[in-house]
């Protein structure tokens, strides 16, 4: 496939937003059970607004993907069958609840709504955070399933696609949360950094598995099934257009195979290889500058990862578009 910048930015930016929110709410949940000190409301509030900014940036990027953005509202119609439609519904829902969650923290409007038998009071932000957590996961699943549900794209048609969307979004979000904590609540850097390391490790595992899997795929479609002629040697001599067509632009990344080979180790190093040891170092010596650099490096790696994710997928329609003629 030909990776579209708009979609690369959409999927990576909302991933950071979701991950950052999940990190904040994880801390709040621990604090609810007195496992960690409860932070100032501003910590959660400004953090969730930062997460909101990332999801908004992703949303803006997504509009560049549409030919007719003015009709975007129509895309919520087919939620019964289309994962894209589901994403279109869940993304604003997540953003809305995320906003309420942050606003509730910042405005101090955070009444205890339910008291558990144990005497534990459940605040409005906990309930909002719980809903937003479910929506964040629903959004990860919708985004991942947009790709995983396409059975012709064998590279994507695996649960690993969804798992990796969750893990990679989570990794970048938790890394950002660690940086955020280093600025606003240095005492929490260790906790969030620890989670960032765990999720980045899981991401490394998940992404390596899908790379391993995809390297062993055998394409189901061949030129023989594509045109229905059972002969071992078939060559295309003309594709019906001399100047290229939509089918040659949309489904080929247009880069050399060597570029594809080079970008794979590059993103593995940037997204996992460098951030992991640096995160470990910053566990003992938290430094805002170092964490900032880790976040930027990892995000760059994840951008390259997403580019490769698209470029690697080989669409069966390409069988019909091999020779200009």
């Amino acid at each position: 496939m030909n990776p579209a910048l708009s979609v690369i930015f959409l999927t990576t930016l909302i991933g950071i937003g979701q991950g950052l929110f999940l990190a904040l709410f994880t801390q709040q949940s621990y604090a609810l059970f007195d496992l960690l000190p409860h932070q100032d409301a501003r910590f959660y509030g400004w953090g969730s607004l930062l997460a909101l900014l990332f999801t908004m940036a992703g949303l803006v990027a997504s509009f560049f993907h549409l030919g007719r953005p003015e009709r975007a509202w129509r895309s919520a119609a087919q939620w019964r069958t289309s994962w894209l439609s589901r994403e279109v519904i869940v993304l604003p829902a997540f953003m809305g609840i995320l906003f309420l969650y942050g606003a509730s923290h910042l405005s101090g409007l955070d009444p205890v709504l339910v008291t558990l038998p144990s005497g534990l009071g459940i605040n409005a932000t906990v309930i909002l955070g719980g809903i937003a957590t479910m929506l964040a996961f629903a959004l990860f699943v919708s985004t991942g399933m947009i790709y995983a549900c396409l059975r012709f794209l064998q590279e994507w048609h695996t649960p690993l696609t969804v798992i990796n969307f969750i893990l990679l979004g989570g990794a970048s979000g938790f890394t950002l949360a660690t940086l955020y904590a280093a600025i606003l609540a240095p005492a929490q850097t260790g906790f969030l950094g620890g989670w960032a390391i765990i999720i980045t490790l899981l991401g490394l595992l998940g992404r390596s598995s899908s790379l391993w899997r995809n390297a062993r795929l055998r394409p189901k479609s061949t030129l023989q099934t594509a045109i229905g002629i059972k002969h071992p040697r078939i060559v295309q001599t003309a594709q019906g257009a001399m100047g290229g067509s939509f089918s040659t632009r949309e489904f080929f990344h247009g880069k050399k195979a060597s570029f594809l080979h080079a970008i794979k180790p590059a993103f593995m190093v940037l997204a996992f290889g460098i951030p992991l040891p640096l995160l470990l170092i910053s566990m003992s010596q938290p430094s805002v500058w170092l964490l900032g650099a880790i976040f930027i490096l990892q995000y760059t790696g994840l951008l390259a990862e997403r580019w490769f994710f698209f470029a690697e997928a080989n669409h069966p329609q390409n069988l019909y578009y091999q020779t200009i003629g």
Binding site: L66, G67, R71, S245, F246, S247, E250
Partner: peptide, 17 residues
């Protein structure tokens, strides 16, 4: 149609432009 091109990804034959 909003021109999102998602349908072309789902067609194995490259029949949509």
């Amino acid at each position: 149609c909003i021109g999102c091109k998602y349908c072309t990804w789902a067609c194995p034959y490259g029949a949509r432009e």
